[in-house]
Write a protein that binds this DNA or RNA. Structure first.
Length: 511
RNA sequence: GGUCCUGUGGCCGAGUGGCUAGGCAGAGCUCUGCAAAAGCUCGUACAGCGGUUCGAAUCCGCUCGGGACCUCCA
């Protein structure tokens, strides 16, 4: 617990000790979705990564301001700076207002993240809500000589930026000359001084649905600019952590660094974090490849790639089993395994919550010398207690090692073993001692619910189930096994199972 | 073509020089009305070849395979 949190910083490609700029406050910015379509499972992985970070930093005692934007304008389809606005395009296709598109998919985004038990960010700003800031930023960049107007559009001047002593390409490891060779075939370079210059304001054709007045005529902001303006506004000129998917590293985050540095004279971000891709059969899940599926399809099992339905928490758990910087490959076998593993954990949680510490009975005797001797009925199993303490420490170590949730989850399973032993009377609470038992209970619940963000998925109400269980006990006592089996069948139909143990009868989620 | 990542047991997935990762699946045992669950035990894993080293899955080189970014993408 005392060791520092280490974070892999994409800027220098190594793990660094995390030090907040102004503790106990931490500024965290994550690039949110462009709300022109439903979010797919790959998108969810990124937001889950930063939800885990948000939860962990909060647990560590930091006061985190978590800003995650909604891109509702400016993100273009296709090549460079010539494509159509994604949201405008959908609006035209469906013949509705762009803001209807935005609202629909924003709602979907929120619904999906809630199902996966992601915490809402502290601030969720939108690009259209910050047009004034963006126009001011464009003016400022022009005034600083880092941007120029061309045909009603304004471009960021990369050559000038580098001449000022900066290094465009630093984050993604790009070399300008090499980039230039590759851009020779791209369109839309006529207005630019340098093909690599990117739009910070775009001139809008009359038929363009989303456009606003500006000093350069009617237009709309460039995609990269919104993140710079909103992060600066809410987190300051230099803030702690900026996150996003790997695929945003270039050019989006590179451009953010350029804009922020150009505007504020300081690199905007201390730690850059990038989560890796979710793959399907080894290939990146993406809309354009047609191998993506929606959370709703996953929950219903209604997609050709899916053999069955998987619950939100199973999927959350599945993703937590890997480290965020590794690619994670989706497969039915892996999901099925995760579903079962999750249910084992949640059954452990459920039984743990009912457990209370019962001290061992103490026998008092008088020894030969006439002195009173008190002997506890159970000796504390120091080996098991030490093992629990070790797993708890290892959990924190894993989380501190660049959020290694894979290793952290393994520790939770180590703890689960003792919970199961307690549940089946293979171990008594007294054998762990009050402190050992308390540690197990406190940490398991904390790790599972607060830090990993997993939760029980309730189906039937507890009252009904407990009534049925009572009936089961009655029939069981009467040895009416046909009735007993009937009740079991009912439970099974609900995805539940009766556990008929020597010392107690209980229900659990079918694994 | 450029830059970078990666190849671990039937499956998923940690680990980056010597110390059991973990989960799922499988086998055996204990328990049990029958089950289920759980606990315990088990399994010649580190793409191939060569090198460095007392010692390599872990470092270096080569070969083969997979992937990402370089154009919108989480």
């Amino acid at each position: 617990m005392t060791q520092p949190l280490k974070i892999y910083n994409s800027l220098n490609r190594q793990k660094e000790n995390f030090e907040a700029i102004a503790p106990p406050h931490v500024g965290l910015y994550v690039c949110g979705p462009t709300v022109y379509n439903y979010v797919h499972l790959g998108n969810v992985r990124t937001f889950l990564t930063f939800d885990t970070l948000f939860r962990y930093l909060t647990h560590m005692g930091y006061k985190v301001r978590y800003v995650r934007n909604i891109t509702d304008v400016g993100h273009l389809v296709g090549d460079g700076d010539e494509g159509e606005d994604k949201i405008g395009r959908m609006a035209k296709l469906e013949q509705i207002e762009p803001m209807e598109i935005v609202q629909r998919y924003t709602n979907d985004f929120h619904d999906v993240l809630k199902q996966f038990n992601l915490l809402p960010p502290s601030i969720e700003p939108t690009a259209t809500g910050h047009l004034i800031e963006q126009i001011e930023a464009v003016k400022d960049l022009i005034a600083k000589g880092l941007a120029y107007e061309s045909n009603g559009s304004v471009y960021f001047d990369i050559n000038q930026y580098n001449q000022n002593g900066n290094d465009y390409g630093k984050l993604s490891g790009r070399v300008l000359d090499e980039l230039l060779i590759e851009t020779r075939e791209l369109e839309g370079t006529a207005e630019k001084r340098n093909p690599l210059d990117f739009a910070i304001w775009k001139n809008a054709a009359p038929e363009h649905l989303m456009q606003w007045d500006s000093p350069w005529g009617r237009g709309f902001p460039g995609w990269h600019l919104e993140c710079t303006c909103m992060s600066t506004k809410y987190l300051g000129k230099k803030f702690d952590i900026h996150g996003g998917g790997m695929d945003l590293k270039f050019p989006h985050h590179e451009c953010e660094i350029a804009q922020g540095t150009g505007l504020n004279g300081t690199a905007p971000v201390r730690y850059w974090m990038h989560s890796n891709m979710l793959t399907v059969n080894g290939q990146k899940m993406s809309k354009s490849l047609g191998n993506s599926f929606l959370p709703a399809e996953l929950f219903a099992g209604s997609h050709p790639l899916l053999e069955q339905a998987y619950s939100p928490m199973s999927v959350r758990f599945f993703m937590l089993q890997s480290q965020y910087r590794s690619t994670l490959d989706f497969s039915n076998d892996a999901l099925k395994g995760a579903q079962k593993a999750y249910k084992r954990l949640v059954n452990g949680l459920k039984s743990l919550k009912q457990m209370v510490y019962i001290p061992a009975e103490i026998t008092h005797e008088t020894d030969e010398a006439g002195l009173k001797v008190s002997t506890p009925g159970v000796e504390i199993d120091v080996k098991k207690v030490a093992d629990i303490e070790k797993s708890v420490a290892a959990f924190y170590e894993a989380m501190n090692d660049d959020l290694n949730t894979a290793v952290a989850v393994a520790q939770v399973f180590n703890l689960l073993k003792y919970i199961n032993m307690l549940y089946l009377n293979q171990l008594t609470p007294a054998a762990l001692g009050e402190a050992g038992f308390g540690l197990l209970k406190e940490k398991f619940v904390l790790f599972f619910e607060q830090i990993l963000g997993l939760q029980e998925e309730k189906s039937e109400g507890d009252a009904v189930l407990n009534g049925m269980l009572e009936l089961y006990r009655t029939y069981k006592a009467a040895q009416a096994y046909d009735k007993v089996d009937e009740i079991r069948t009912y439970f099974k139909a609900q995805g539940l199972v009766i556990r008929d143990m020597k010392h107690r009868i209980d229900w659990a989620y079918e694994e």
